[in-house]
Simulated assay, not measured.
Amino acid sequence: MPHNIFGTQVIAAPMAGGTSTPAFVTAVHEAGGLGFLAAGYKSVAAMQADIRAAREAGARFGMNLFVPDPAQLAPSAAALAGLEEYRLRLRPDALRYGVEVPPLRLDDDDEWEAKVEALLADPVELVSFTFGLPGAEVVRSLQRAGSAVLATVTTAAEAALAADQGVDALVVQHGCAGGHSAAFLPDSPAGPAVPGSTAELIAAVRSAVGLPLVAAGGIMDGAGLRRVLAAGAQATQLGTALLRTEESGARQLHKDALASPHFTQTAPTRAFTGRTARALVNEFVRDHPDAPEAYPAVHHLTAPLRAAAAAAGDAERLNLWAGTGWQQARAGSVAEVLAGLLD
């Protein structure tokens, strides 16, 4: 078994959009885990401010970056037509709140190069990547700067490609995980009924590569943790299990929805961002089953609707990210939830 570079068996997932705050990451650290800040959707300055805040609090932490997809940033004529059609279909949702659906935005690469340069100039202990691979040159540069590099993968095939780029470890995400799928190969499973279990996926990746593995998806208790460790993971990455905690930066509306009997299932959807993400099934998910695959263009189209829904306390039109084990998510402090997991 490779050396455990994480120093813990519990990692808090980088949850972009405001959930993984420096205070949340600090609480995870103080409870014996390792938290990841999320650079996604943030400016370089905001990412750097989060790093400073976590350091000042004395926390160990990592930073996660979104890898841009060149094909999504330069869509075909057919893809553009699909986006314009979806924009029209969103108008009734916008009218409900008195907001406008914005024009298409196709230039957002999440400040990719500037964020990489900032992390090279001021290195953090661990850097992870989601939605693709950063390239061997970026991996080597970060490692030379002193960072360990993790790639997020969803299949053994993706794991092999990541290993070829020289990363230090892999986050292996099963399709039952909440939020965005990290899949970057076209045949990666992300349907409503994903095959196998997280432990089985870990075993498959373990047989394909020799890197340290972090299991992500569906781990909600100590039994789940033990299963993935037995399958070959060194640690587990928790997202949904920590969403309802006091220190989580998730909206209270989201936290309440996770505990509400009104919501009875999750499903993968592109309706909110144009990238497959598992969420509680609400009216917006049901109304837009065929949203185009176009991230982050769809994210920008729906942003005013989501903000208005949140302001109105309307959980039916908010992106309620949740893994399949959401009903086991507990309220309370991060320390209490992690203590229950590690018992």
Rank of each mutant, 00 (worst) to 15 (best):
P261M: 03
S181V: 06
Q234R: 13
A230Q: 15
A204Y: 05
Q252K: 10
A216D: 11
P261T: 00
A182D: 07
A257M: 00
N282R: 11
S197M: 12
T264G: 11
L243K: 00
R286F: 07
S248V: 11
T273E: 15
H299W: 03
L213A: 11
T198Q: 14
L238N: 09
A250L: 01
V167Y: 03
E246K: 06
H300A: 12
V281T: 02
A279F: 02
L258D: 02
A203V: 04
S248Q: 15
C176K: 11
A297H: 14
A208K: 11
P212A: 11
L301Y: 05
L253D: 11
A267N: 09
T264L: 13
L185M: 14
L253Q: 15
D187G: 01
T240A: 10
G218K: 03
L185T: 01
E246F: 13
L201N: 05
A199I: 11
S248D: 13
E247Y: 07
A216L: 10
Y295P: 08
A250E: 04
G224E: 08
P195K: 03
T266C: 02
P292R: 10
V209D: 09
T276F: 02
R206N: 07
E246I: 09
A233R: 09
G249R: 00
A267L: 09
A162W: 00
S248L: 02
L280V: 01
S260H: 09
A163P: 04
T273R: 14
T240R: 00
R251E: 15
G178S: 10
S248P: 07
T273S: 15
A208N: 06
V167G: 00
Q237W: 03
A231E: 13
G218E: 08
I219D: 00
G217T: 07
S181R: 11
A259W: 00
V214N: 01
K255R: 14
A235M: 13
A193T: 14
L225K: 05
D187F: 05
L280M: 07
P195N: 04
Q173N: 02
L170C: 10
D221E: 12
E247D: 03
T276E: 11
G191T: 04
L243T: 12
G175L: 06
D221C: 15
T264S: 09
V205G: 08
P212H: 14
G274V: 12
S188L: 01
L229S: 14
L225G: 02
A297S: 13
L170W: 04
R206V: 10
G249M: 01
A199D: 10
L280F: 04
V298L: 11
P186A: 03
G178R: 12
E246P: 06
G210C: 12
G222E: 15
V285R: 15
G249H: 03
V298W: 12
E200L: 04
R278G: 04
P296D: 12
P189Q: 02
G249A: 09
L238I: 06
H262G: 04
R226E: 15
A294K: 09
S188E: 04
V281D: 09
L211W: 10
S207T: 06
A216Y: 02
R270W: 10
V298N: 12
N282Q: 07
A182T: 03
S248A: 13
A267K: 04
S188I: 01
K255H: 08
A215K: 04
S248C: 09
Q237I: 02
V285F: 00
